Simulated assay, not measured.
Amino acid sequence: MEQVRVYAPATVANVACGFDIFGFAVDRPGDEVVLTKKDTPGIIISEITGDEGRLPLEVHKNTAGIAIQKYLEHIGRTDQGFTMALHKDMPLGSGLGSSAASAVAGVFAANELMGKPLSQKELLPFAMEGERVACGSAHADNVGPSLLGGFVIIRSYNPLDIIEIKVPEDLFATIVHPQVEVNTKDARSILEREIPLSKTIEQMGNVAGLTAGLLLSDYELISRSLEDVIIEPIRSILIPQFKEVKSAAMAAGALGCSISGSGPSLFALSRGLETAEKVAVAMTGAFKDAEIESEAYVSGINQRGPVVS
């Protein structure tokens, strides 16, 4: 095989109470990489679409490019060269794991063309290097679910320990992206460095409760646990109409609603597709009341991760 086209899904990270440790994949949006072998060493990024000219073509500055480069170094095949085209199908700075999806699509495509010397899970450290380029931190709560699919827990970063857990079949996500932008680095910079013990205990209870609720298919427990008492109160000030949109989601029947990643996208979880679609209408309507245009996506929890398209 000389060329492969790979689509990697967007993700919701943090999932309310699970800052930097929870994430799940959705069906759309996502990013696509077309990777082609070439006869000479080195990676050439020939084209990037959908980014309004904002992403770098230099390999060491590009999330997909650096992920592929680190992968080739690891397997000892720096003699193999590639030409890459990247097609962005989601907005930058959206809180939907845009940089992660690009890195995952790139390294997954490279592994396909090299004959799959590594397992899917073994590709994770290279995709994480793409995240380091994008936001200065090699976190895995976006690349983990984008690469592995489903809902993941990052139990530890040193050593890296990723846990994949089952979720109820009737659990659906609504994601709404308003036409505003929040930079990940900015969103991290405003966070408190010290957390009161009482808030830490409350957040730990929600993390444990959400994990148990998913495993037990206990929707009421999921709903009670989708509360973030540490990050959301601070980051929500960066998102116009946040309180109104969250209230609209809950009134429409959502189990819970919070910020997707660092925002500005919001996500809600619901029981059943019909409810998730009603929640989408309510959330976009609340943004529209403030004259903010937004786009909604409704999806089950994507269990596949990247696919050859």
Rank of each mutant, 00 (worst) to 15 (best):
T36E: 15
A64R: 03
L72K: 05
I68K: 08
M84S: 02
G81A: 06
D79P: 02
I68P: 08
I44G: 01
T36P: 05
I45K: 00
T63M: 05
I44D: 08
A85Q: 09
G81S: 03
T36C: 11
D39A: 11
P56E: 05
T83V: 09
Q80P: 01
I68M: 14
E73D: 14
T63E: 09
Q69L: 15
L57I: 03
K37V: 12
T83G: 00
T49E: 10
G53A: 07
D39Q: 08
E58S: 05
I68L: 10
T40A: 11
L57V: 05
A67S: 15
H60E: 15
R54V: 11
H74G: 00
G65I: 08
I68C: 09
Q69C: 11
T78F: 02
R77P: 03
I45A: 02
I75K: 08
M84L: 12
E47A: 08
T78R: 11
K37G: 12
T40D: 11
G76L: 13
M84Q: 04
E47M: 10
H60M: 11
H60S: 14
Y71C: 12
I48N: 05
I45F: 00
D39V: 04
T49V: 08
M84W: 05
I45Q: 01
F82E: 01
T63S: 15
F82V: 00
G42R: 02
K61V: 03
G65P: 09
S46K: 15
G42P: 10
R54L: 15
I48P: 00
I75A: 13
G76C: 12
G76Y: 13
E47Y: 07
F82L: 01
R77Y: 02
I44L: 11
A67M: 12
H74V: 00
I48M: 07
T63F: 02
E47Q: 15
I75C: 13
I43G: 02
I43E: 02
E52Q: 10
G76S: 11
I44S: 06
G65V: 03
G42V: 06
V59W: 07
T36A: 07
S46V: 03
G42M: 13
D51S: 04
R77H: 01
K37F: 12
K70I: 07
Q69T: 12
I45L: 06
L86Y: 03
E58N: 07
S46A: 14
D51R: 04
E52A: 12
L55Q: 09
K37S: 13
